[in-house]
């Protein structure tokens, strides 16, 4: 299979100011339209790696080694959708401002594009007529707005940091379906950070398993989950508590 690599992370190492290694020699490559998952437990460095790609490292953390090669536009979707939105600004306005500045269009056109985006993300029509603030929307609706804002940047790479962790399972399912559908339509690539292996399995074609700042194993999702080589991967897989299949049901995921 040949594909265009649009993001290449090579030997990325991150340290605190006190020279405490947080991420150690992480390397992976992302092809056009592909989704790569970074999975691992808390403190594994998966979110930091994502932030390094975006170029937004927290204070006191610096890149000490390695390269991140990418000429593509990136946008990020965060774990806490409410925290990512301005609570005092109506959501449509927040979105249309991003559209206006990133796509260089007039105020009116920006609003048109924004409303179209919101519709595509399955947000209710009431947003068109009445101003709604983030506090008036549910968590799932806020996350849809955040995704719309990210897509307004017309990214070739969408960076997702646990986008469904704060949401209920039924909402999680809808958001995942929405992201997948949009990806098919718009063809962006994704780096998807999650601690939930089952979500990663549903979203990603490739997985990197991270532990203590290092990638312990990476490969094709199905292959990796069915045939893990590293004991840590095996342990993670074993820790997933199974939910039995419903009687007479078709498989819903994958």
């Amino acid at each position: 299979m040949s594909y265009n690599i649009i993001l290449e992370v090579e030997d990325l190492s991150l340290e605190t100011k006190q020279h405490h290694r947080l991420v150690n020699r992480v390397s992976f490559a992302l092809g056009k339209g592909e989704t790569i998952g970074l999975v691992g437990e808390s403190g594994s460095g998966k979110s930091l790696t994502l932030r390094a790609i975006l170029g937004l490292l927290p204070r006191g953390v610096e890149k000490v080694d390695g390269t991140i090669k990418s000429d593509e536009r990136t946008a990020m979707v965060f774990q806490d959708p409410r925290g990512a939105l301005d609570p005092l600004c109506p959501v449509v306005k927040q979105l249309s401002e991003v559209v206006r500045f990133r796509q260089q269009v007039s105020k009116k056109a920006a609003r048109e594009i924004a409303l179209e985006l919101l519709e595509r993300l399955g947000l209710p029509d009431s947003l068109k007529t009445a101003d709604r603030y983030p506090s008036q929307l549910s968590g799932g609706q806020c996350q849809r707005v955040v995704i719309a804002i990210a897509l307004a940047c017309k990214p070739s790479i969408l960076l997702c940091d646990e986008p469904t962790t704060a949401l209920d399972v039924t909402v999680q399912k809808q958001i995942i379906e929405t992201i997948s559908a949009l990806q098919k339509e718009l063809g962006f690539a994704m780096v998807f950070v999650t601690h939930n292996l089952a979500v990663a399995a549903a979203m990603c074609s490739k997985l990197c398993v991270m532990k203590n700042g290092e990638i312990v194993e990476q490969g094709d999702t199905l292959d990796l989950l069915q045939n893990p080589q590293d004991p840590y991967t095996q342990m993670l897989i074993n820790s997933v508590l199974p939910v039995p299949e419903l009687e007479g049901s078709e498989r819903i995921w994958n």
Partner: peptide, 13 residues
């Protein structure tokens, strides 16, 4: 609820 739970792929071997 039950059908919304993401599930791991079934083992092939």
């Amino acid at each position: 609820l039950l059908s919304a739970v993401p599930r791991m792929p079934k083992p092939s071997t």
